[in-house]
């Protein structure tokens, strides 16, 4: 049990520390693909450091909700990082929250971010909050459908059991997971504010969603939110790995497999980040009102995945 707790804390800390690196890697790949000279890998860390040192600038009317929200959002993402197995499976904390609760954690962070965006009452803040909720009301059930497909296969909504079924039992191909994978990719793109649903580098009012919400944040609050965004990307990547390519995650109690698991994680993250930036580079941002269609497709694909499971895998 005590090794479990040590491993749990180590894994969560590792996620917190590695998350900006993944962000830096994706940015670097994207810059390469766009023919720009890339910022160094450590750029996100430098930005965080800079932001933490600055004076916080708050609007006159900002309430406590506004000042407190970044901490809650960050805590939610840390919690998510604690649940998703990255290196070791079956950690002591994971029974506290299963995949449905994981979706709830993301929703909690999102609602707080949207409320904080509406707190000052600027035009962009409310616009961002509205668009974010528009994206999420389809993305959230779609994510649930992806999880449901996986949990119908493994007969459990616990991530460790899902990973164990998929990675450590007899190998089998699950056609339903093909649907789930496509849906999951679409959802993670939308939830992490990336092309084709949102563009993380724009401040154009016609298109921005996530950036519009955090316009009023500065200094340590902004740093926490940026860190939380990086963590969200990290946990989504980890989720994708756990659901679709779980091989390499060390089973419970097998400490010898740890170095290999760490290596596997790094390789998968590097490949995954590169793939994400490639997909971003070759797709165009869709109009805002195509976004519900995009996510609706993801939702229906998730439902189809469950149907396929009933046809082929029962």
């Amino acid at each position: 049990m005590s090794t479990g707790i040590v491993l749990q804390i180590a894994q969560t800390l590792l996620a917190i520390l590695l998350a900006p690196l993944l962000m830096g890697w994706v940015n670097q790949c994207r810059a390469w693909l766009q023919g720009r000279s890339a910022p160094p890998l450590t750029q996100p860390y430098r930005m965080l450091r800079k932001l933490f040192h600055k004076d916080a600038v708050l609007a006159h009317d900002a309430s406590r909700l506004f000042r407190f929200a970044p901490y809650i959002i960050f805590a939610c993402m840390v919690l998510a990082a604690g649940i998703v197995p990255t290196i070791v499976n079956d950690l002591p904390f994971s029974p506290a929250a299963d995949v449905i609760a994981l979706v709830g954690i993301y929703a909690l962070a999102r609602v707080f971010l949207a409320l904080a965006a509406m707190d000052i009452g600027t035009s962009f803040g409310t616009l961002g909050a509205r668009r974010e909720m528009l994206v999420s009301f389809l993305a959230e059930p779609a994510l649930l459908m992806v999880f449901f497909t996986a949990s119908l296969i493994s007969q459990s909504t616990e991530l460790p059991v899902i990973v164990q079924t998929l990675a450590h039992k007899e190998f089998a191909i699950y056609p339903s997971m093909a649907f789930a994978a496509v849906a999951f990719w679409m959802i993670s793109v939308a939830e992490n504010a990336r092309i084709p649903v949102d563009n993380p580098t724009t401040h154009l009012e016609l298109t921005m969603i996530h950036e519009a919400m955090i316009l009023e944040y500065s200094a340590r609050h902004l740093a926490l939110i940026e860190w939380a965004v990086a963590l969200k990307l990290f946990t989504y990547s980890a989720l994708g790995i756990a659901l679709f390519v779980p091989w390499g995650i060390a089973p419970r109690g097998d400490l010898g497999a740890l170095p290999l698991a760490l290596l596997a994680l790094l390789v998968k993250m590097i490949v995954g980040g590169a793939a994400l930036s490639l997909l971003e580079a070759i797709s165009a941002k869709v109009r805002l009102f195509r976004a519900p269609e995009f996510l609706g497709t993801a939702f229906l694909l998730g439902v189809l995945g469950m149907l396929i499971h009933f046809l082929l895998e029962v």
């Binding site: 409320l115 009452g121 909050a129 909720m133 009301f137 959230e140 059930p141 649930l144 998730g302």
Partner: peptide, 29 residues
Amino acid sequence: PVAAASVALAAALAAYVMVKFYGVVFLGQ
């Protein structure tokens, strides 16, 4: 499963409604 999807959709829309309710009445100017 389709029914479960509808329940999930209703729950997610409820979050939308509540952000609207709370944000418009209690937050902002």
